[in-house]
């Protein structure tokens, strides 16, 4: 029936390789930025607000610091925090999703209701309110975003658990007298982990953006550290004098998040052949 063609497996594989390759290069720059760009915090007033040039690809900021190296340093902070946040959120989400889906009944009802409550508060606003209670700081930032982040995981884990719960191998294991903990751990957990993977990838990008937004508003990472949101906040002052302060951080942030998202999509397509129509 369908007159349009489906992308071949090979093409898809290539796509994943391209995304992964690009992402890998960026990741290497980001992760090893303190060693690649050791003097990203060195102040040199003679180089104040320089336009992008061969020496300074993204230009320099008002302290004469090289923006290119600072952007990668900043991404390092964002990425690290985002990974921690998503790891915590994923753990909570997995636990609650598994329990909720597997046990069903009152437990499921209760967790559903908790999830509804959490979803009623926009992340940024709830995060700011919590930061007001806990005080500004990097640790608070991580805690707050993890606390707000688990719901998305829990929902998907729950619905996957509901599916796998009725599968033959689970029913079989139960009939064979396997304990709930054993079935959850041995049979369901490995199976729900896979569908969660694309979401987890996407959420890393989300985490980076959330950290940047909060820092931009003054509730996240504090000034001496390089961080994308913070750099963009400072760029607001220099928007007509030095617009490149806006450009560099924006490009790298967008590239990293876009690549992570593309990778997530590619993984999803690969794992779920039914949804091949819906690449990107």
């Amino acid at each position: 029936m369908r007159k349009y063609k489906v992308k071949t497996k090979k093409q898809q594989k290539n796509l994943i390789w391209i995304w992964s390759g690009l992402l890998l290069i960026l990741l290497i720059l980001i992760v090893f930025s303190p060693y690649i760009f050791p003097d990203s915090n060195t102040i040199n007033y003679e180089l104040q607000l320089q336009k992008p040039s061969f020496q300074h690809w993204f230009g320099t900021d008002e302290f004469g610091r090289d923006l290119f190296s600072r952007v990668f340093n900043g991404m390092r902070t964002s990425l690290m925090y985002s990974l921690i946040i998503e790891a915590i959120a994923l753990t909570i989400g997995l636990a609650i999703g598994l329990l909720s889906g597997y046990l069903g009944g009152k437990v499921d009802g209760f967790f559903n209701y908790i999830m509804n409550v959490f979803q009623a508060f926009p992340t940024t606003i709830a995060a700011i309110a919590l930061i007001a209670v806990l005080g500004t700081g990097d640790l608070t930032l991580i805690i707050v975003l993890s606390v707000m982040g688990w719901v998305a995981y829990a929902r998907i884990v729950r619905s996957e658990t509901l599916i796998f719960k009725e599968r033959d191998f689970v029913l079989g294991a139960r009939a064979a007298g396997g304990s709930s903990a054993y079935i959850l751990g041995k049979h369901i957990f490995p199976n729900v982990l896979l569908p969660v993977l694309p979401l987890a990838t996407l959420m890393i990008g989300h985490g980076i953006m959330a950290i940047a937004s909060l820092s931009f508003l003054g509730f996240g990472v504090q000034p001496p550290n390089a961080e994308i949101g913070l750099m963009l906040k400072d760029s607001a002052t220099f928007i007509s004098r030095a617009p490149w302060l806006l450009v560099g951080p924006g490009i790298v942030l967008a590239m990293v998040v876009a690549l992570i998202n593309a990778l997530g999509d590619a993984i999803r397509d690969k794992m779920d052949p039914q949804k091949q129509m819906m690449e990107i």
Binding site: I43, E62, F63, T136, G218, Q222, P223, P224
Partner: peptide
């Protein structure tokens, strides 16, 4: 914020560490 970073750098030169904290 800018003066803060400047002072942090200046005091570093005489061996004083500065933990800069910016609040509303």
């Amino acid at each position: 914020r800018s003066v803060g970073v400047f002072l942090q750098d200046a005091l570093k030169k005489i061996g004083i560490a500065v933990d800069l904290q910016v609040f509303d």
